[in-house]
Amino acid sequence: MVSRPERLLRGRDVPLSASFLELFFDLAFVLALSQLAQHFLADLSLVGALRTALLLAGVWWIWVTTTWLADWYDPEALPIRGLLVGATLGSLLAGVAIPKALDGRGLLFAGAYVAVHLARGTVTALMLRGHPRQSRALRILTWYSVSAVPWLLGAFLPEWRVPLWVLALAIDLIGPRLGWPTPSLGRARQEELHLAGEHFAERYQQIMIIALGELILVAGLTYAGTRLNLPETAAFLLVFANAVLIGLLYVTPAGQRLGPAIEHADPSRLGVVTSYLHLVMIAGIVATAVGAEVAIAHPTEIGGTTVVLVILGGPTLFLLGRILFSIAIHRRISWPRVAGLLALVGAAVAMRLPLLAVSAVATGVLLVVAVLDRAGIFTFRPARAR
């Protein structure tokens, strides 16, 4: 007879495809990405970019850890279904708080974030009493209890909010990489951190589609608010092409090989590193959406340095994450992506053209990179260390 704790864990007979509630949870990320784009648009500066990145990292880590929850535990078990619903609500509340999270709604953002993590740790630790996997849940709960202190202190101390939240995020992001070492419990062993590669790869593709959906939604809504003239139409089509090219560059080939790579790698390395790199790529897509809104609304205006940096910086950030992603998955360097990255950086430094032309440059670079990358002519695979 299977024990109650065993019924909570994901068994071999549980389908690896995402459950309905996991997809339902992803919908909360739609609001968060939209709010993040508007947050950045309201302050197109380096400070604005860093503040938006801080909030993006927070909501992203809710997504990552909730995906781990559904990977380690049976998503159809009643307690896990409750945690998935709770994580959806928490993500929605964090998304609602984003526009003023660093001002008047800090407690709502931090409270939602902390509640999701502590609820997950508490429920799983209690439900796994007497089971060897309880130690993993206790380690995770301990680390999030520690990081909850700077999260909540930052909510009540506005002048210290940013540094305290940066500290809290650093604790949360580094914990799994170290195996959540905890007094008397030690460090999590590799088998405790194992991830189902097929499930995780599918979830990453689904959240990338959500991010690209936000880009397309922004483009469509902005275009609908214009007079639909030729420059505005051209800018809209360029943004659509960017979305298609970013999607193609993601799925080929490392995106398709992610499942087997995670399945057979050290999960504390590859499983965690891929979550960091997807954060970089999604940040690039958010920045691309912000640049798209400005370019479609004002295609014939000469772009200032900040706007040009945003329009070109989004694809640049995505390519950077994608290059590192390929290296992490199968130690492959795509020189077309590296060249495209350098071309975008150079264009951002030197360019002062109408925003439509800036968008065309970004699209042209992505197109050339996608074509050359697909051909696989200029690819270098470093020799494995012996």
Rank of each mutant, 00 (worst) to 15 (best):
I209Q: 01
L238R: 02
V349K: 02
L228E: 09
G220F: 14
R374L: 12
W160I: 05
L16M: 12
P315L: 02
A241N: 09
M351Y: 03
D43L: 01
N229C: 01
S268H: 07
Y223H: 13
R386E: 12
S145V: 09
L258I: 11
L279T: 13
S326H: 13
V368Y: 11
L128E: 11
A18C: 14
E301N: 03
V162K: 06
E198T: 14
F24Y: 14
F20M: 02
Y73M: 11
L169E: 15
L320I: 12
L215M: 13
P5L: 01
W63E: 12
I285D: 01
V307I: 13
G186V: 06
T67L: 08
Q256W: 04
I377V: 14
A125T: 07
P382H: 01
L93F: 15
G346M: 08
S326N: 12
V146M: 11
L221E: 05
L153Y: 00
I296W: 02
P354Q: 03
V272S: 02
F240Y: 10
T316Q: 03
A49Q: 10
L84Q: 13
K100M: 10
R177K: 13
L245C: 09
S91Y: 03
V280C: 00
L141W: 08
I62P: 11
E202S: 06
L167F: 07
V307R: 00
R177M: 14
R136F: 08
V272W: 04
L141V: 06
L41G: 08
F200Q: 07
L27S: 09
P382F: 00
S268Y: 01
A87K: 04
I377D: 04
P181K: 00
T288K: 04
F29G: 13
P183H: 08
